[in-house]
């Protein structure tokens, strides 16, 4: 089975550059604006799109993504309306891979089988579900693979040699290396260690390795692109959304442009590195 994710990474590899993976929260700051932001991402330079599924209790996320999730929930975003965003996006874009990222409970309550069917039909390509480690693969990972979706696993600095094979089994699409032990948006990673870590993972898998957590600028992105197959940026983008809002927390005429401008800047950083 080849997914849009596999196709995209293969194409970029032959182009000789790393992928830019962008994360934005569904429904942030409101459903319609989030959809417009997501539609604008590919043109701004995003190669893959992660869409956050808002959750009240995101235990691995820092303040920026927590706040983005709460803004979305306050605006009435649900997992159903998040899937609607993907469906609407697919009307004009059938190539950019879409990954839904979040926590298990809303999926569990939606119903795993129904969710997988609806997500696949809407045009979702992969899932990142933070609180589903390999120990809980029967819950979501295996059903997702069976439904034809990629299940992208997080590997972290605490995932040692002994554990890596377990984490990589049943992982598909790419491996998301979390470059720090910490929550999203916190410390800046030590870039010299990133290449070593990527090499460590690649010794165990043929899959592309994307690196995230702590990427804020074009130069961060260049530094990571040297050693990885993909660069993930998230907190910086949701912060750009937040900073563009008016005093009541509503979208302004600057909101979409604020995100796309930052994506373009970081994309230039990624594309400056030839491989």
């Amino acid at each position: 089975m080849t997914t849009r994710i596999d196709t995209r990474f293969a194409a970029l590899k032959s182009e000789g550059r790393a992928a830019l993976v962008t994360f934005v929260m569904a429904g942030d700051p409101d459903h319609a604006t989030a959809l417009e932001i997501i539609k604008a991402l590919p043109k701004a330079g995003a190669d893959l799109i992660e869409i956050g599924m808002p959750f009240t209790d995101p235990m691995a996320d820092g303040p920026a993504i927590q706040a983005a999730g709460l803004r979305a929930l306050a605006g009435g975003e649900t997992l159903h309306s998040t899937i609607d965003i993907v469906r609407a996006f697919r009307v004009n874009d059938t190539e950019t891979p879409i990954i839904l990222m979040g926590y298990f409970n809303p999926i569990y309550i939606y119903g795993v089988e129904t969710f997988l069917k609806d997500a696949k039909e809407a045009g979702v390509d992969g899932l990142i579900v933070v609180d589903c480690p390999p120990e809980e693969d029967d819950e979501l990972c295996k059903p997702a693979l069976k439904a034809g979706l990629n299940f992208i696993r997080l590997a972290t600095p605490t995932t040692d040699e002994k554990r890596l094979p377990k984490v990589l089994s049943n992982t598909s699409g790419f491996v998301y290396y979390v470059s720090i032990t910490g929550i999203t948006g916190s410390a800046t990673p030590d870039f010299s260690k990133v290449a070593t870590a990527v090499a460590r993972i690649k010794a165990h898998t043929q899959l592309p390795v994307a690196v995230g957590f702590g990427v804020k600028t074009a130069s961060d992105a260049s530094a990571i692109a040297k050693g990885a197959d993909g660069v993930v940026v998230g907190s910086a983008l949701v912060e750009a959304v937040r900073k563009s809002l008016d005093a009541d927390g509503k979208a302004t005429s600057k909101t979409i442009g604020a995100v796309t401008a930052l994506v373009s800047e970081i994309a230039a950083g990624v594309r400056a590195v030839k491989k």
Partner: peptide
């Protein structure tokens, strides 16, 4: 041995915490 009481319990944590 997997931390379940019937269908309840388990280990639904981020990978960073799993080794811990």
């Amino acid at each position: 041995e997997t931390g379940h009481f019937g269908n309840f319990g388990g280990r639904f944590v981020a990978e960073t915490l799993m080794p811990l």
